[in-house]
Amino acid sequence: MGMHGHAKEAQHLFNQMQHEGVAPNDITFVAILGAFRHAGMIEEGQKLLSSMEGVYGVEPKVEHYGCVIDLLSRAGRLDEALDLTRNMPMEPNAYTWGALLGGCRIHGNANVAGEVGKRLLDLEPQHSGRYVLLSNIYAGEKRWDDARTTRKLMQANGVAKMPGLSVIELQEDVHSFMAGDHSHTE
């Protein structure tokens, strides 16, 4: 519901659950925080995360923190997102660092991206998308040396970027096309 622009309705259902005595569990909180994330409801997300354990008796997990980190990152509040990531009571996972790196891309913050990218590459050294995204963030800020260094690190680690693939069905035949593929041209 929240992913489809209905965060206020999701919040209303959450409140209705409480009114009817239905106790929320950790999955309920992932859903409502996800709704807040997609709607940009920063204060609501932060308030809910901080009240989970004390008010509802549900210990926040990395997924809950990840939703709020993504929420802050999308909103451009990268320093807050980085602080939350650093101060989580558990080790951040690739999703949390990835959400933060995505925010760096959206808002063109190569400085935060440098630290975040290093953490991500330590966690997922074979994930080509992490190198490409970090390199593109550097290139967007005209930090060409950093962009080249990231691409060289990718190559040195034996990581290859997979080309894009499109698939269409035409008259009951399935055709696939890769980036740069000219085999279907006449």
Rank of each mutant, 00 (worst) to 15 (best):
M3C: 14
M3Y: 15
H4G: 12
K8R: 15
A10Q: 04
Q11M: 04
H12P: 00
F14I: 09
Q16C: 14
V22N: 14
D26Q: 13
I27T: 15
F29C: 09
V30G: 05
I32T: 15
G34L: 05
G34N: 05
G34I: 07
F36Q: 08
R37P: 02
M41H: 15
M41G: 02
L48A: 05
M52S: 09
M52W: 07
E53Q: 15
G54A: 14
G54E: 12
Y56I: 02
V58T: 10
E59I: 08
V62Y: 10
H64F: 07
H64L: 06
Y65Q: 09
Y65E: 10
G66E: 06
G66W: 02
G66P: 05
L71C: 14
G76A: 12
R77I: 03
D79I: 08
D79T: 12
A81L: 03
L82C: 03
T85C: 12
M90W: 11
P92N: 12
N93I: 07
A94F: 06
G98L: 01
G98M: 03
L101F: 08
G102F: 02
I106S: 08
H107I: 00
H107Q: 01
H107T: 00
A113G: 11
G114R: 09
E115F: 15
E115G: 15
E115W: 11
E115C: 08
G117K: 00
L120S: 03
L120H: 02
L123V: 09
E124N: 07
E124S: 07
P125T: 10
P125S: 09
P125R: 06
Q126F: 01
H127K: 04
S128C: 02
R130A: 01
R130I: 08
R130L: 01
Y131V: 00
V132Q: 05
V132I: 14
L134Q: 00
S135R: 02
N136P: 03
N136L: 01
I137A: 10
I137V: 12
A139E: 04
G140S: 00
K142A: 12
K142V: 04
W144I: 04
W144M: 07
D145Y: 10
D145G: 08
D146T: 04
R148Q: 15
K152C: 06
M154N: 01
N157C: 01
G158M: 01
G158V: 00
K161Y: 04
K161S: 03
M162D: 04
P163F: 09
L165D: 00
S166L: 14
I168R: 14
E169P: 00
Q171H: 13
H175E: 00
H175L: 11
A179V: 12
G180W: 09
G180A: 09
T185E: 13
E186W: 11
